[in-house]
Design a protein around this nucleic acid. Structure first.
Lengths: 105, 105
DNA sequence: ATAACATTTCGATAAAAGTCGAAATAATAT
DNA sequence: ATATTATTTCGACTTTTATCGAAATGTTAT
């Protein structure tokens, strides 16, 4: 993943719907979660959801697996992890910080 | 930082220029770096740079400190760290991964 | 006071992203 | 074959971002 790709991936996380999708996909594990289920949970039109999913796929943050007529969305954990490492290694020098682990509500 | 703010912050990192700024600010430490220096290094028009800086400030990723007629840009490390923690805690369950530490070029 | 410097605001324009109904595709079941 | 279900594509539209020259603002030096 090079700089432009990292940046593109962050942009993907920069939309509440897509960030919700990603967050939901974590819980779904490797089995993933059907598009339809996502749609019910997020309660948005299918075309809108499809658009965001496609965007996430192109950015390398998720992949899809088809079973019958159901499409499962699966997070690409390794790439999310890369983003985390980018922030951790390039952005956060620990001496600079005293971080409270529970700041994330 | 709540969900919407996290998402907003990721969006900020989702532009190559702004991600470059953030990356540069890390090296600058708490002293920060003058807007003018950033401009020379990035080689973009001042109005464009100013626009992106303003955006980063509003998203809580950096702050500014004035010294004479020079404005220093300083990263808000703690918020970048929060993003990293968000990805680490909410998105990356370590059992799911074997991560190569050197994947970031 | 005026000039030189650092940076922002304005304003106009161009480009990209987001939204969603309706039609199209694909898979399975009857 | 036809109907049903799951999901995507199309197309039109609205909203948001990005870009950048030029003018304005604020700061220090002369």
């Amino acid at each position: 993943m090079k700089f432009e790709e990292i940046s593109r991936a962050f942009k993907e996380l920069g939309h509440p719907i897509r960030l919700s999708i990603v967050k939901r996909l974590i819980r779904a594990g490797f089995q993933g979660i059907p598009v339809g289920t996502l749609q019910e949970e997020l309660n948005i039109p299918n075309s809108t959801l499809s658009h965001h999913i496609s965007s996430l796929v192109h950015a390398g943050l998720m992949m899809q697996r088809k079973e019958g007529r159901t499409l499962f969305c699966v997070l690409k954990y390794e790439n999310v992890k890369l983003l985390q490492l980018f922030l951790e290694k390039d952005c956060c020098v620990d001496e600079y910080l005293e971080v409270k682990e529970n700041l994330l509500e």
